[in-house]
Amino acid sequence: MTQPRPVGVPILRLGDVLVTGLLNELDDRAAIAFTEELTARISAEGARGVLIDISRLEIIDSFVARTLMELTTVSRLLGARVIVAGMRPPVAITLVELGIELVGVETALNPEQGLAALGWRQAQEPLGGSRRGAAR
């Protein structure tokens, strides 16, 4: 066994949320390494939420789909809620035709909305410049 290639996407921490992403060049070994690293970090840092940006994935086959579903399940068991954000339209169509609905995986249109769902809000307005009335 050779060393797994680095996945290339660092896992950032924002408070109790971990933010990361998948690249298109994800082979099986990298996918496994990614899952392991992420679950280790969730557990070590007590993360409550995980945001995975998949907007760079040009295809999702059943292997990557399984990786995402397992990640979601494992994270849930560790007490973290996973949101997968930014799936491209052709990828969504193909997945549905493959018969994979990513059951149990929460999705968001883009990382911003995913973060919002995880409890993060837009940065506070600078002093004196409140564009909107009541915060949503």
């Binding site: 954000a85 799936m87 339209p89 969504a92 549905v96 609905e101 249109l109």
Partner: peptide, 12 residues
């Protein structure tokens, strides 16, 4: 149904 599922996968 597929359309609805695909829309959901995109997060809407």
């Amino acid at each position: 149904m597929q359309t609805v599922n695909a829309v959901r996968l995109m997060g809407a």
